[in-house]
């Protein structure tokens, strides 16, 4: 396999851009109630910020930002957040994923639905981010020596 070409300019540019893309990804997830956005789009942006460093810096450098081992637990955490939200609603006496029954005191049902949607959007974002990084990592494994 060909040695990866190392360019300090590309690496510096990616390092400058990556935190802002990640911040924008979280903004898209959290602000998805008021503007176009949500878990899927924000998760894709988060994955883009990590993959930028992965492409520019190679495996060894990018493992300082996010290690490959974390991918599977993070994806599982995202699915678990979604599923447990539904199960908590069932235990509180509602249907599966009926956010109006979530046991948060002092809120009416409509605002409970607001926060329930926010929780599951974060779960979706984590899963999409982890899976997109996972697909990339598994495809290029053993092919770059940077």
């Amino acid at each position: 396999m060909k040695e990866q070409f190392q360019s300090p300019i590309v690496l510096l540019g990616s390092r400058l851009l990556s935190p802002y893309i990640m911040l924008f990804g979280w903004y898209v997830i959290i602000h998805g109630h008021y503007s176009p956005g949500g878990g899927f789009q924000g998760g894709a942006l988060l994955a883009a910020s990590v993959l930028l460093i992965r492409v520019a810096g190679g495996t060894r450098l990018s493992s300082l930002q996010l290690r490959e081992v974390i991918n599977t637990p993070m994806a599982t955490l995202g699915v678990a957040i979604y599923f447990l939200t539904g199960v908590v609603a069932v235990l509180a006496g509602g249907f599966f994923l009926d956010y109006g029954q979530l046991p948060i005191p002092g809120l009416e049902a409509a605002w409970l639905r607001y926060y329930g949607i926010l929780i599951i959007e974060v779960g979706i974002g984590l899963t999409v981010m982890a899976i997109l990084i996972m697909i990339y990592d598994n495809m290029v494994k053993g092919e770059d020596h940077a």
Partner: peptide
């Protein structure tokens, strides 16, 4: 759901099992 973005409400509330 007190959420102005209708796509988010459909995605997260009305069709939440589909999204799961």
């Amino acid at each position: 759901a007190r959420t102005p973005n209708m796509v988010t409400v459909v995605l997260g509330d009305y069709r939440s099992i589909d999204t799961f």
